[in-house]
Design a protein around this nucleic acid. Structure first.
Lengths: 142, 142
DNA sequence: GATAAGGCTTCCCCTTGCTGGAAGGTCAAC
DNA sequence: GTTGACCTTCCAGCAAGGGGAAGCCTTATC
């Protein structure tokens, strides 16, 4: 099948599929007119990649997972290891976002959000900065 | 002061500060030897930017926040609006990561992680392809 | 004065994972 | 024979900088 067919099947944009070929994740055949020709196995791989990416795995993780997927002799421990590391990265990211969220939510709550200029959000972002004290300062040339 | 000094003060790498000048966030002077010369106000802006970025605001958000910060006539509502939109994006991201996390944790738990090749993680990643191929299974597993 | 260390400059490429567009070849239909 | 939908390649670019080269500038020490 052509790239449009496999794009529809896998749910991936054609551009993405070409990119995946570029970086060696899939290796479709070529027909005489130069068009890529995808086998069933290619379609499976692409769907596999789509699912892996949807779980947030990096391209390199996907490459490794795909290799394990195709290796009938793999040890499930190898797969689990990749997944656990990814899980950890996700947890780190969630923790970081939650910290941001907490700080930001606090500021948003404190801000009146009206026509007046007083704003605790800006005040917090400006902590340690002496406001506009330097406006009249002469140039400190080196 | 030179870029190294303001880098130490603001906690931002010199590279980042040059980049911020490139995109017009700060406009340091130049001394005769070609070195950038930062005023107090530049240092304040950079610290402001560092804190805004630490809260996850995009560069464009930062640009707008900085403009509001310098505008004595601003309405706090404008600031709050930017912050609230950002809060929403953070929440979306957290929700997405949590969904990933849940799916992944479930798979990791199900995987023995031993020397055997049987792996529920790979099985799941391959599910859409196999489903499409042989089993037209009902995926309505609640 | 010479030299070495460190700071500063610009320049361009690299990253991640694609996405868009231009310029053009191919194919099926009318 | 001419649309129009596909397909091809290559080039550019996004966020938000990071790395490192090649080359000035400054300061300290001998």
């Amino acid at each position: 099948m052509n790239i449009g067919d496999v794009a529809a099947l896998s749910g991936l944009p054609a551009k993405t599929i070409r990119y995946y070929e570029d970086i060696g994740l899939v290796k479709p055949l070529r027909s005489t007119n130069g068009y890529r020709t995808f086998r069933e196995s290619d379609a499976h791989k692409l769907a596999f990649l789509g699912r892996s990416r949807a779980l947030g795995f990096s391209i390199e993780d996907c490459r490794n997972l795909l290799a394990l997927y195709e290796d009938e002799e793999r040890a499930s421990a190898e797969v689990k290891d990749i997944a656990e590391q990814h899980l950890e990265r996700i947890d780190d990211k969630i923790a970081e976002l939650k910290k941001m969220r907490a700080a930001l939510a606090h500021l948003v709550d404190a801000c009146a959000g009206d026509h007046r200029p007083d704003c605790p959000i800006l005040a917090d972002l400006a902590i340690n900065t002496t406001k506009h004290r330097d406006e009249e300062q002469f140039e400190n040339t080196a």
